[in-house]
């Protein structure tokens, strides 16, 4: 199991343990973290699992695919650290990952 810290836009923090191999989106869904909607269930088709990866972790995560890049180009309030959490798969190396959630996914 590895830890992920989700910080909602209002500052609420949730540290949860999820299995390596699961996505950051799945961890949020399983722990009912409301800032992640994930309507398409992880097919990189809805862009409602948008998150901001903490600066310290950005380089540790593989770059977005073309498909993710396209979906990101359409999210609200995109920042350089924006990612779709369904495209980040947890590994032991990401243990302790911190992601911040946007105010709204729509």
């Amino acid at each position: 199991m590895v830890k992920v810290m989700y910080i909602e836009a209002d500052g609420r923090e949730y540290e949860v343990e999820i299995a390596a191999g699961d996505t950051v989106m799945q961890g949020a869904v399983d722990h009912l973290i409301s800032g992640i909607l994930a309507e398409c269930g992880g097919s990189c088709s809805c862009a409602t699992c948008h998150c901001y990866v903490d600066e310290a972790w950005v380089t540790k995560i593989p770059d977005p695919s073309d498909t993710e890049e396209d979906m990101l180009s359409a999210v609200e309030e995109r920042k350089p650290t924006s990612r779709l959490s369904c495209q980040i798969t947890m590994t032991d190396g990401l243990d302790g990952l911190v992601v911040r959630l946007p105010e709204s996914q729509y």
Partner: peptide, 23 residues
């Protein structure tokens, strides 16, 4: 019900591209 992950719009790279307009 939390029905996220259903396959109704497909799954993966060919998942329905118009799913947000359908919703």
């Amino acid at each position: 019900r939390d029905c996220r992950g259903h396959a109704g719009f497909g799954i993966g790279i060919h998942a329905c591209v118009g799913q947000m307009i359908a919703r």
